[in-house]
Amino acid sequence: MRDMDFTAKALADLLARYEQTGAPKVLSCRPLTGGYSRIMTHAVVAWPDGREQALVLRSDPPPEEIVYKTDRRSEWNVLRALTDAAAVAMPPALYFDDGSHLGAPTIVLGCCDGPSLQAASMDGDADLDSLAEQVADTLAGIHNVDLALLDGALTPPDDWASYINGLVDEWALAEKAHPESVPVLRYLSAWLRAHRPAPMDMVLVHGDFQASNLLVKDGLQAIDWEFAHVGDPREDLGWFSLFSASIAAPNLYGRDPEGFLARYRAGTGASPEAVNQATVGYFSVVAATRVYLSILQSAAAMAEGKAQGVMLTYNLNACALGNFNWLSICQSLEGAL
C-alpha cells in the first residue's frame, strides 16, 4: 500500500521549492486508480489566498514493476511545451520532480474532474454521435499542432519512409531479441513491409489515443502523453480504432467509420486516399508496436528474474488479444492495400 503521508509531505516540499513566495499547504492525498503504467495520486492543496486546487501526480512505479518504459522528463518536456502554447485541450503541466522529493520521477498536473470518455460513453443518455465527432475533432487538433511550438521537446524522424520502415522492422527485431519465439510478430513485420500505404506529413502523435485517456470536461481533454512522438497521424487513428473495438464500451469509431474519418479529414485537410478505413486498419497494427513491445520486454525481464508484479502477467492477455486482432486485421486488408 502506498504511503500517502510521505507523498503529502514530499509534495509540500516540492511545491515549496517551486513557489518560494507562497507555497500552498497540502490538505489531502489519495491514490487514483485507472492508469496502468504510472502511479497516480490525487492531491488537494490550499493556497495562501484561501483558494483550493486539486492536483494529479503522475509518478514512475518502482523499477522492477515498470511495464511501459517511458521517460517522465521527456513527457514533462512535451506537456510543458503544450501547456505553454495552449495548443491542446489537456490538464496543465505544473511541476516536475526528478525523484529527489517524491522518490520517483513525477509530473504534477492540474486535475480535470470529468469522467473518462470510456465511462461517459457507457452512460445510457450519452450522445454517441456528438462524442464521436468530438474525438475526431480532438485528434485533428492534436495533429494540427505546429511542431515548432514543441520547442525541441520531440525530435522529428528524418523522413516518412525510414520512420515507417523502422516501426515495421521493430516487430521482427524485438521478436528476435525476445527469449522465446513469437512467430506472429515476424509474420506481421513481413506483411506490413509488403503492404505499405502512401506516405503522409508527419505530425505530433499522442501515441496512446483511446477512450480512457480522454476526459470529458469542456469538450475532451487528452491525458497520458508518455508515448507522444512525431510520426504518422494514422498511428493515432489506428490505435483509437483498435482500442475502441477491444473495450466494453460503445465503439465510437466502429459505429460509423466513414463518418468519423470524414470529420477527421475535414479538420485536418487529409485526403481520402491517405486516410481511409484500409490505411487506418494498417496503422492499427503499426501503432501497437510501442505498447506491445513494452509488455514483451517486461515479460522477458520477469523471465530473467529482473521484474515482478501482477500487472505485468495480467497484461500478457493484451498481447494475446493483440496477436489475434492483428492477424485478423491483416487478413481482412488483403487486397485493400
Binding site: T33, Y36, Q118, I247, N317, L321
Partner: peptide, 8 residues
C-alpha cells in the same frame, strides 16, 4: 474473458 480492469 478479459477486460481492462480498473480502467475507464
Amino acid at each position: 474473458d478479459w477486460a481492462m480492469i480498473g480502467r475507464g
